[in-house]
Design a protein around this nucleic acid. Structure first.
Length: 673
DNA sequence: ATCGATCAGAGGTAT
DNA sequence: ACCTCTGATCGATGC
């Protein structure tokens, strides 16, 4: 990983770099809508990872976690609004939350109008020392009300029985987005409170527990083989996600099994395993997995390391070996972008080929199972292995044209690849990592920057930058946006916090290893070698900010590719969040990346995008320093094309600029601008 | 920065 | 009640 990072250069972002080596000058995007050089069919999505889309099943109203960008008039369910800044609000100042009063606690609980509190709250009350009762109770009430309100705004409390029993792609995507949004939100709230030493709050488990209790889950019944709505290659970042969608039921154990009635006998049969390196698994081969049985393991109070026994999961694996049933395999490993976290990849169906017992490093017996991947499935874990090779030696990348398109302007290289035809690169442009000619206007009221010398801390009641964001730091750790906002106020040149401040995410440069590649039918596109978490920052839209007179010219000229136009009409994203928080920019912003730009200029349009944009205002004395940042709608597996919604041109020039859309989504509008 | 020890947890099975 | 390839945190090392 590190060896692919060029020596800094990140300090000198003002340099404009020429990308001259690209000799072949061909159009970047599909040209005219009636061009015959592009296929008219919508089939054949470039990869197996077509984004979830389409009409929601009955009972599942789409709700808009990250809000609906653009025109508020385009929001269909105006009556389903919920704001986080409303009364119940999470935006209660920390100080009021911290004033302990039994009356307050009782009121807070009563206000939820939920007579039954989840058992987790009761437990924490019982287990916590006397002095902390109220804090915990208030925290729980606070979080419960957030969850309640989010769920209420989605017109949904539980799925019906059919949906709980069997999912589909949309339902699975919906549950995962809901889960991760709530998890980020709870993390944000917890972070803003004073930490209780020695107490870890585990938002992942908490939110999982709440959704489980509310039956916001699917594929509940255990099954052998494929799980409806889950595709080979899908990625996850928490074990709870696997539970909620029925891919792997135990929230910690590595082997999931069910009893299968054969004549009179009840045989346990393994249905899925999670291999994440906790034991002495062998992950060398992409299609073969040597998996260790469970039990007899290290650390458990009052228990010694011991021989593993042929019971529970081990017995199930043994039975599955003889029965020859398919076993789902989820491979987990350290997330390179987030050292303390893990990423899980659903690697499809395997069969157990053999089993044996061997002595582990501790000297105790360990069961071993050899699993072999069934042929004919899309590649999943194999792609990760390939990428690892590319990172070690860039020349291993087939079709490589340039190892770094940015020529050092970014803090990570951006490879340029064509493995579909012989085109040698996109049309000439100059790589530049941020905006030129920014700061076109003056704000209504002057503002001052922060003085957080060690970086802005969540929950700091005195930080003006956090105040401007409604009292919460808008980003979770690791540059993940909690939810879409009308406008995010980042720290900027007039702040005294350091460049690595958590409130400067869009200024920190690339955090995932990107690749510009030739698509099959949409010209050049953008994708990532690294997995991307839902909400994670991807890149800024760089280019030249167009002045009014330049915008006027746009319609008449035909060369208006590579435009970001915040004034267009945008469709609502299907993400959990607050539908009131639609992007609102302080002044019209149109960016041209035709001559000067960064990776963002290669992102293609999709009517069901996996990336959304977010306006950012950087604190800069009395100037409006407005930028556009792109974040992930949902978890995005490596090598999946990144797309966002280009929006709709409202005025009469629209028809002239229509291009045939090839996004392949069920909800495709048929064209884009 | 990376490692290990630590521990409260969750859904689930087994009794 | 018992089980477990979690996940965050805290301290101690590594370079």
């Amino acid at each position: 990983m590190e060896n692919s990072t060029p020596v800094s250069g990140s300090l000198d972002k003002s340099r404009v770099l020429d990308v001259r080596p690209l000799r072949c000058l061909l159009p970047v995007f599909p040209s005219a809508p009636n061009s015959s050089s592009f296929p008219n069919t919508h089939d054949g999505a470039p990869f197996g990872f077509a984004p979830p889309s389409g009409p929601f099943p009955p009972g599942v109203a789409p709700f808009y976690p990250f809000g609906s960008p653009g025109n508020p008039a385009a929001v269909p369910n105006q009556n389903a609004h919920f704001t986080f800044t409303n009364p119940i609000s999470t935006a209660v100042p920390i100080t009021t939350i911290r004033t302990p009063s039994t009356q307050h606690a009782a009121e807070a609980n009563g206000d939820t109008s939920k007579p039954k509190r989840p058992k987790s709250s009761i437990k924490s009350l019982k287990k916590t020392k006397a002095g902390r009762h109220i804090d915990i109770a208030l925290a729980d009430a606070d979080i419960e009300s957030v969850v309640e309100n989010v769920l209420a705004s989605s017109n949904l409390t539980t799925f019906d029985m059919v949906q709980q029993a069997n999912g589909d792609k949309e339902l699975v995507a919906y549950i995962l987005m809901m889960y991760d949004f709530l998890r980020r939100k709870v993390t944000q709230i917890e972070e803003s409170k004073e930490a209780i030493p020695g107490v870890t709050r585990r938002p992942d488990l908490r939110v999982g527990n709440i959704l489980m209790n509310k039956k916001i889950r699917t594929n509940m019944r255990r099954r052998i083989g494929a799980v409806a709505g889950v595709e080979v290659g899908d990625i996850f970042f928490f074990r709870m996600e696997l539970c909620l969608i029925g891919l792997h039921a135990p929230c910690m154990a590595g082997i999931d099994y069910m009893s299968l009635k054969i004549s009179q006998d009840d045989d346990p049969i393994a249905v899925s395993i999670v291999s994440s390196g906790g034991y002495e698994d062998n992950m060398e081969d992409g299609d073969v997995l040597i998996y260790s049985g469970q039990g007899g393991n290290y650390y458990r109070k009052g228990k010694e390391i011991s021989d593993q026994k042929l019971e529970r999961g081990n017995l199930a694996l043994e039975k599955s070996l003889h029965r020859g049933n398919e076993v789902r395999v989820i491979r987990g490993f350290k997330d390179v972008a987030y050292t303390t976290g893990k990423v899980y990849v659903y690697d499809g169906l395997y069969k157990i080929q053999e089993s044996w017992v061997e002595k582990g490093k501790s000297g105790c017996n360990i069961f071993k199972y050899k699993l072999v991947r069934l042929p004919g499935q899309p590649e999943a874990f194999m792609i990760w292995k390939l990428i690892k090779q590319w990172k070690e030696a860039i020349n291993a990348r087939v079709g490589l044209i340039l190892p770094d398109l940015s020529l050092g302007a970014e803090n990570l290289p951006v490879s340029l690849v064509n493995d579909v035809d012989d085109e040698k690169g996109p049309a000439y442009f100059t790589y530049f990592p941020t905006l030129k000619n920014s700061k076109p206007g003056n704000p209504m009221e002057p503002s001052t920057g922060c003085i957080c010398m060690n970086g802005c801390r969540p929950g700091d009641p005195n930080c003006p930058c956090i105040k401007k964001n409604g009292g919460y730091l808008p980003y979770n750790p690791n540059a993940v946006l909690v939810n879409q906002k009308s406008l995010i106020y980042e720290c900027g040149p007039s702040c005294q916090c350091p460049p690595n401040c958590r409130n400067r995410v869009s200024q920190g440069g690339l955090r995932v290893r990107l690749e510009v590649f030739k698509t099959k039918d949409k010209g050049w596109g953008l994708r990532s070698w690294d997995p991307i978490r839902a909400g994670a920052f991807i890149c800024e839209y760089a280019g030249e900010v167009l002045a009014d007179y330049e915008v006027e010219k746009l319609g008449s000229e035909n060369d208006d590719d590579c435009i970001f136009d915040a004034t267009r009409i945008y469709q609502i994203l299907e993400m959990p969040g607050d539908s009131n928080e639609t992007p609102k920019i302080p002044h019209p912003l149109i960016i041209s990346a035709k001559g000067i730009g960064n990776v963002a200029r290669f992102m293609n349009h999709s009517c069901s995008p996996n990336v959304f944009w977010q306006p950012i205002l950087r604190e800069n004395k009395n100037e409006l320093d407005l930028h556009i940042a792109f974040h992930a709608v949902r978890h995005i597996p490596p090598m999946t094309e990144l797309t966002y919604d280009y929006g709709i041109v409202p005025h009469d020039k629209a028809d002239l600029r229509k291009k045939k859309c090839l996004c392949g989504s069920i909800k495709c509008r048929g064209y884009f601008h």
